[in-house]
């Protein structure tokens, strides 16, 4: 087996998931200015719901639809019930609120599904494909393709459609956007529903390859957040950064070992955060 090729395959697979999560995180961030630390829970919830329904003999497509719907409902509800009524709160407090929601979700998932990891059958279960001296599961190819296509569609959506412009206007200046006739509430709702759909999609495609458990959410949030932060919270760039993060991790693991991966990856993250923010001062609260 060619290790180099294998590292690329592995990196693209995890990168695809980071990309899906990062894009969702960024879309919600851009309407609220809040880094939603409960974002990864959409992944955990969708994964758990699909697994439980699959276990209960519900047909897989139906289970997947239900799981993705649950993830969308979760994030929409988070915005509607918790974040929106508190939009005048400082951003830091709202980030903590989302952390609280993440903790609560973890507790609920553990009660609902227990502590064991869960999984379900893959959509493409035929033998893995041999390519350029590496091996990759068909489901992983599906994941990579779906993630890339979703990213391109969303990039187009944000750049070219009326909604995309509204989304950006809402992010930059909610009051002004409202004056210009943008329905800020609706925009936020759509953004959170979209973010939930992406998180759910990631779960529907990845959980057959990697099991999910009640505490998977926070880890997923962190990875998506890292990709998003590297991209400076821009949706297009965060897709690329998601894939790059996956590839970088894979190469560090391949050539440096699993023990080196965390220190190296996160040192790079710190450097990137410093580089990204070198021009930004007095951000957020302190701006006139």
């Amino acid at each position: 087996m060619n290790l180099f090729t294998q590292a690329i395959f592995s990196g693209l697979t995890s990168g695809a998931v980071y990309a899906l999560l990062a894009v969702g995180l960024v879309i919600a961030y851009r309407t609220t200015r809040v880094v939603n630390l409960a974002h990864g829970e959409s992944y955990a919830i969708a994964g758990t719901v699909i697994s439980l329904l699959d276990h209960a003999q519900v047909p897989l497509p139906l289970a997947m639809a239900a799981g993705i719907a649950a993830a969308m409902l979760f994030l929409w509800g988070l915005d509607r019930v918790i974040l929106r009524p508190r939009s005048h709160w400082p951003v830091g407090s709202l980030i903590l609120v989302t952390l609280g929601v993440a903790f609560l979700s973890r507790g609920v998932l553990m009660l609902a599904a227990g502590v064991d990891p869960l999984s379900f059958a893959r959509i493409l279960s035929a033998r893995p494909v041999r390519l350029f001296g590496g091996i990759i599961a068909r489901q992983a190819i599906l994941l990579i393709v779906v993630s890339a296509v979703a990213a391109i569609i969303i990039g187009y959506f944000l750049a070219r459609t009326r909604f995309g412009r509204q989304l950006r206007a809402t992010a930059e200046h909610p009051e002004a956007a409202q004056l210009m006739g943008v329905n800020v509430h609706a925009t936020r709702a759509v953004a959170f529903l979209l973010a939930g759909a992406l998180g759910g999609l990631a779960a529907a495609l990845l959980v057959p390859l990697v099991p999910v458990d009640f505490q998977a959410g926070l880890g997923m949030t962190l990875r998506g957040f890292i990709a998003a932060a590297l991209a400076g919270m821009a949706p297009g760039a965060s897709v690329i950064c998601g894939f790059l993060l996956g590839l970088f991790e894979a190469f560090v693991t391949t050539y440096g070992g699993a023990l080196a991966s965390d220190p190296v990856v996160f040192l790079v993250l710190i450097a990137a955060a410093l580089w990204r923010s070198r021009a930004i001062r007095f951000e957020g609260r302190a701006r006139a």
């Binding site: 294998q6 590292a7 693991t253 391949t254 023990l259």
Partner: peptide, 20 residues
Amino acid sequence: LARIDLRATDASIQLAQVAR
């Protein structure tokens, strides 16, 4: 021999390293 992190979601690199 290859090591895998507890939080890792994928072991294919490690397996590729050891499964010659």
